[in-house]
C-alpha cells in the first residue's frame, strides 16, 4: 500500500502578512514557515495508517529549495521519502498538474492532502488532482478508515456530517479530528537526515490564472467601548449606527 501526502510550506498561523515589490511579492521577513496545519493532519493520519496497514508514506511539495526543511520535518514525523517538484507553486491548476504527473508514475493507493492551504485557501487542489487521475476526491474529511480495498469516511458539510464509502484509490482533503498532530522526536529528526529527498523538474502548464497584485485589508477603526450597565446603548448603536437590527 502506497500513500502520498501533499504538503504546503506556509507561514505560521500567527504571522503578520506583508507584501513587497509594489504588492506583488510575499514578504518572508521574520516569517516562520510550517507544514500547513491541515496537511499536518493528513500526514498524521498517513503515519497511523502506515503502522496499521504496513504502508509506505511519500511526502510531496511543489516549491523552491527553501521548502526542503519543511519536507525534512515531514520525514522526521515519519514519512519514508520526500519529493520536491522544483517550481514556484503559482496556481492551483499548476500545482495539481505536478502532483498528478508524479502520482501517475507511482500509482498510489491513497493520496492525502489538507482540506485547504492556509496561504491560497483555495480548497481545490485535491479535487483537481482527483479529476486529473480519474479518482474520487473527498474533502473535508474528519475520519478515515481503510479496510482492504475500501475506505469509510466522514466528511464535514454545512451544519453536519456525511458518511461515505469509497473504493481505493482516491484523493482526500483532511481536517481535524482525523488524527492528532504529531511532533517529531529526536530519533525521527536524526533518521530524517538520511531519508531520500528527491528533486524533480516541473511539467510545463499553460496556466489560466495570473497574479496581478496583493492587497491588505484596511486597518480596523478603533473600538467603541460601552459600559456593562448600559447594554441598551449597544442595541442602539447596532440599530442606528451599524444599521443591523
Amino acid at each position: 500500500m502506497k500513500i502520498l501526502v501533499c504538503i504546503t510550506h506556509v507561514p505560521d498561523t500567527t504571522s503578520k502578512i506583508n507584501f513587497t515589490d509594489n504588492n506583488t511579492k510575499f514578504d518572508t521577513n521574520g516569517v516562520q514557515f510550517i507544514i500547513g496545519p491541515y496537511d499536518d493532519y493528513a500526514l498524521a493520519r498517513a503515519i497511523e495508517l502506515k503502522e496499521s496497514l504496513s504502508a509506505t508514506v511519500t511526502v510531496l511539495n511543489v516549491g523552491l529549495q527553501d521548502t526542503e526543511p519543511t519536507l525534512r520535518k515531514a520525514l522526521a514525523i515519519g514519512a519514508d521519502d520526500a519529493i520536491r517538484v522544483n517550481a514556484e507553486p503559482v496556481d492551483s491548476f499548476f500545482i495539481a498538474t505536478q502532483i498528478a504527473e508524479h502520482a501517475k508514475t507511482v500509482g498510489y493507493d491513497l493520496i492525502l492532502m489538507g482540506r485547504e492551504s492556509i496561504d491560497y485557501n483555495s480548497g481545490v487542489v485535491h479535487a483537481i488532482v482527483g479529476e486529473m487521475l480519474g479518482m474520487p476526491s473527498i474533502s473535508p474529511v474528519m475520519k478515515l478508515d481503510v479496510k482492504g480495498n475500501t475506505a469509510k469516511l466522514a466528511r464535514e458539510i454545512e451544519g453536519g456530517k456525511e458518511y461515505l464509502e469509497v473504493t481505493l484509490p482516491f484523493v482526500a482533503g483532511c481536517q481535524e479530528p482525523i488524527a492528532e498532530w504529531k511532533i517529531p522526536n529526536m530519533r525521527g529528526i536524526m533518521a530524517a537526515r538520511t531519508k531520500p529527498l528527491q528533486v524533480v523538474d516541473a511539467t510545463a502548464v499553460d496556466s489560466g490564472v495570473k497574479l496581478r497584485k496583493f492587497e491588505l485589508p484596511p486597518p480596523k477603526g478603533s473600538v467603541k467601548m460601552i459600559s456593562a450597565d448600559n447594554v441598551a446603548e449597544l442595541v442602539n448603536l447596532l440599530k442606528n449606527e451599524a444599521k443591523i437590527l
Binding site: V124, A127, I128, E131, S137, S139, E158, G208
Partner: peptide, 24 residues
C-alpha cells in the same frame, strides 16, 4: 457559491474544461 459541495464541483468542472478557476 463556495461550499463543501460547490467548491470541489467548481474545481472538477474547471479541470475538465481547462477553465480559469478562482474560489473565495
Amino acid at each position: 457559491a463556495n461550499s463543501s459541495l460547490g467548491t470541489p464541483v467548481a474545481a472538477r468542472v474547471a479541470a475538465r474544461l481547462g477553465a480559469s478557476l478562482a474560489s473565495n
